[in-house]
Design a protein around this nucleic acid. Structure first.
Length: 818
DNA sequence: GCGATACTCACTGAG
DNA sequence: TGAGTATCGC
């Protein structure tokens, strides 16, 4: 985040005396920000509204601690939600204090916990090389367990079991503590408890933690081994937590453990360096670390994942004597955008009133648009993007948000067709692709042979003729002889399987052994930095995995080979950045990267992402799409306690990302599961004062021009149309008519010339030149102004007779030359 | 054990 | 629509 008023012109002349050291940190701050940077005490809560400069405040606070010699870098622990946010904070602190920033822990909850767990794993029965199971991995394991326990008969699905286990772990419950309170006379409950316990046993046996365990087991470690906890309490004297409103109970407990005072008896290695500002050196015990948290309960959007808003609302009770600082001035958005945001969030009743304000002036009006279909809506977005681009706004300053990932497809189709460069944050993640997971499973099989899931995964990849029967035989053999699944692979002759399969197993075993020598050289030798990449290449090549893909005639396999190349490149990159990184470090990094992390804006393309991913980001122009009932608020949220309110916060997060221009759009019909259904405008739209919105095409317009006489929509027109609304019907929102009072619009839609479809055609090598006239399926006739680009990426700039100026990707546009 | 085909079910959200 | 799974014939 960048907030203009905080950017300080570099002072001329050398920064000579210590007295002036803090000047550049403090200048340009408003009084609240100043207090947030300079307050010293055991606990500080910074309530930071959207765009109020919290990142600046946090980084300056850290810099000020370091510059004032109040803390060594190693005594600072700063927690963020994404690796990207962590990297950004590290960079900004480095910009303020230079070298002194090294040695700080600035990381996510998950990475910090992995670091601690790797160090301490042996204390409680794990090894340093434990595996991290992502949700897909644990889903697979739970699926097996549900099957083994025949639990589907009790209505337990893998998804529900996984969800419940995750929730419980976020509450720091285990199967035993849960069983104590559960109704164990219910057979489904008993089954669930069995599976939960079994799941945990399997994880332990596999030397693995799932995502939730990373936090929960660290808390457990601290509680079970106070001496271990004390070393970290001594070390971290200043703990700062960002996005505190999204912490769950386990994370809260972790922070609590870390900020406890240290009991007196143990020696204190840090007491002698004179850095302890809170206590005299002779004190018998060490006070708890100083805690700073930053958050905004209006931006809490992860309750579904266990985030507990009470962590922030009850902070003052949890940490008596805490100071609270409120940052309400917004440095990001224009007043129109903020007024809309305030109006929307004001409908949540259980919040402390807080009004964002800006001194940047009203700015442009919010633009509203209703499309007939999602394609139509997407075309509006694409057109508007092009208009802003022509007006000088770079693509990288624009973003399109949607509620669910599936909405991105229609947008993508139109963007491709309109030759708008874009990139999608999220969706199918690189590390969730099958081939990457296979490659990872190979690496894990070497790094952590106890992880049976991974070994089983690669057993028959590539095909070695090993099916269920052989797999079970191996498992039985291992069990009978008290050895691990992995070890059983090294004695294929004794498994009682055919010679061909024996050879396959022997070959796999040999490859894994060879890779082990590269990745984990025996007896204390330090592997060279390139070992991870080398080991990976060897595994992929000698296992026959790559050859099998290359030999395949499935066109997708070509892309898979490229992905694997990319993955090897990631490993080489890793070696470059971490010369001493081990295979375990590499696997950690890979397991913990997330979508929000690879946002990189240099490429000059429009960003598309879900509103969840958008948190913490900002853009000059923002398009919030699909502002419809059942989408935002999402249908499923209605059944959850606090669901609709969380949806409203999510919408609020979306609109407060915009600096200058905000667009809200929806479609009257939306296709899902291949079927077209009618959509209704979101209730949130009604909560925005009508005078702030310039409707290019309101829901009412679509309705009347579509020839539909729906009372439901006409009744709402006052709120949507024309900007002259009295707001009289703004409170009628809750009485939405049943959906079937609307007939699908599709029957009458066919009349409309600007109905845009997702149609694509392969024009092969159609030649166009300036001056040509063409006909487009959706836009009608037009004249080519210019042609740019090369080969498959040639773009026609066309002036349509009625639809205006458009860019078209010639290869796929539904056009013909006249 | 494998590959092709038919069929089913799902789309919140994310670490 | 399209990914994932069950079923079947080889």
């Amino acid at each position: 985040m960048t907030e203009a008023p905080l950017i300080v012109p570099s002072t001329s002349g050398p920064r000579a005396s210590a007295a002036h050291d803090q000047d550049d940190l403090l200048s340009g701050l408003n009084p609240q920000q100043l207090a947030a940077v300079t307050y010293r005490g055991p606990a500080l809560l910074i309530v930071a509204g959207a765009g109020s400069g919290k990142t600046s405040v946090l980084t300056r606070r850290i810099a000020s601690l370091l510059r004032g010699r109040e803390a060594w870098p190693s005594q600072i622990l700063a927690i963020t939600f994404t690796n990207k946010a962590a990297g950004e904070m590290r960079e900004r602190v480095a910009g303020l204090v230079g070298e002194a920033s090294r040695g700080m822990w600035i990381s996510t909850f998950h990475s910090a916990c992995v670091r601690i767990l790797r160090r301490e794993a042996e204390q409680f029965g794990f090894t340093k090389s434990f595996t991290i199971y992502d949700s897909g991995d644990s889903r697979a394991l739970i699926k097996r367990l549900v099957k083994d326990h025949e639990a589907d008969a009790y209505g337990l699905t893998p998804a529900s079991v996984q969800g419940r286990i995750s929730k419980l772990k976020n509450e720091l419950q285990d199967s035993e503590s849960y069983a104590r309170d559960a109704n164990m006379s219910d057979p489904a409950e008993r089954k669930f408890v069995e599976i939960f316990a079994d799941y945990q046993r399997r994880l332990r046996k596999a030397n693995a933690f799932d995502f939730d365990d990373l936090i929960g087991q660290t808390v457990y470690l601290f509680r079970a081994f106070p001496k271990v906890a004390d070393t970290y309490r001594r070390r971290f004297r200043h703990i700062l937590v960002d996005e505190y409103q999204d912490t769950n109970h386990a994370q809260y407990a972790l922070i609590h453990e870390l900020t406890r005072p240290v009991s007196a008896d143990a020696p204190d290695p840090y007491a002698s360096n004179g850095m302890m500002i809170f206590e005299p050196e002779t004190a018998p015990e060490l006070e708890g670390a100083s805690l700073t948290v930053v958050g905004d309960s209006d931006q809490s959007i992860y309750a579904f994942r266990g985030a507990d808003i009470r962590n922030i609302s009850e902070f003052e009770r949890d940490f008596p004597g805490a100071r609270v600082v409120l940052l309400e001035q917004n440095y990001r958005s224009t007043q129109n955008i903020l007024s809309a945001a305030n109006a929307v969030i004001g409908n949540n009743f259980d919040r402390k009133d807080k009004k964002l304000w800006s001194d940047r002036g009203d700015g442009d009006m919010i633009v509203g648009f209703t499309g007939y279909s999602q394609h139509d809506e997407a075309q509006f977005v694409a057109d508007e993007v092009e208009m802003l681009r022509r007006a000088g706004m770079p693509y990288s300053e624009m973003a399109v948000f949607y509620r669910t990932n599936s909405q991105s497809r229609a947008l993508e189709e139109i963007f491709i067709r309109s030759a708008v460069p874009y990139k999608i944050m999220g969706g199918t993640k690189f590390y969730e692709r099958a081939e990457i997971k296979d490659a990872l499973a190979y690496l894990i099989s070497v790094a952590n042979p106890a992880d049976e899931m991974s070994v089983r995964r690669i057993l028959n990849k590539p095909r070695r003729g090993i099916g269920d029967v052989t797999e079970t035989a191996i498992a039985r053999f291992a069990e009978d002889h008290g050895i691990s699944f992995r070890e059983a692979l090294s004695m294929p002759a004794q498994l009682g399987v055919g010679p061909k399969i024996q050879a396959g197993i022997a070959q796999l075993d040999a490859v894994l052994k060879e890779a082990t020598e590269i990745l984990l050289p025996a007896s204390g030798e330090v592997p060279p930095p390139t070992s991870v990449a080398d080991g990976l290449s060897l595994l992929l090549a000698k296992s026959g995995y790559l050859d099998a893909l290359r030999a395949s005639r499935d066109p997708q396999d070509e892309a898979r080979v490229e992905n694997l190349d990319e993955f090897v490149a990631v490993a080489r990159d890793f070696a470059r950045n971490n010369p001493e990184g081990t295979i375990a470090d590499f696997l950690t990094e890979v397991a913990l990267v997330s979508d929000a992390d690879d946002l990189d804006d240099e490429s000059g393309s429009v960003s598309m992402m879900t509103m969840h991913t958008a948190k913490g980001l900002e853009y000059d122009a923002v398009f919030v799409t699909g502002v419809e009932e059942d989408l935002i608020p999402h249908r499923i949220s209605a059944g959850e306690p606090g669901g609709p309110q969380e949806e409203r916060r999510l919408f609020y997060v979306g609109i407060t990302r915009a600096r200058k221009r905000l667009h809200l759009s929806l479609a009257m019909t939306r296709a899902q599961f291949g079927e077209v259904s009618v959509a209704m405008p979101s209730r949130f739209l009604q909560e925005i004062p009508a005078e702030l919105v310039d409707w290019r095409q309101s829901p009412g317009d679509v309705n009347s021009r579509g020839g539909m006489q729906s009372r439901a929509l006409n009744a709402r027109r006052g709120g949507f149309g024309g900007g002259s609304s009295s707001g009289g019907d703004r409170f009628g929102v809750k009485k939405l008519p049943p959906r079937d009072s609307l007939k699908p619009l599709s029957t009458s839609m066919d009349k409309f010339t600007n109905k845009v479809t997702g149609k694509v055609r392969d024009n092969g090598d159609l030649e166009l030149a300036a001056g040509d006239r063409i006909r487009h399926d959706d836009f009608g006739e037009g004249r080519v102004d210019a042609v740019t680009g090369e080969g498959a990426k040639r773009i026609a700039h066309v002036r349509f007779d009625s639809a205006g100026l458009k860019k078209l990707l010639i290869k796929i546009a539904p056009i013909e030359k006249l």
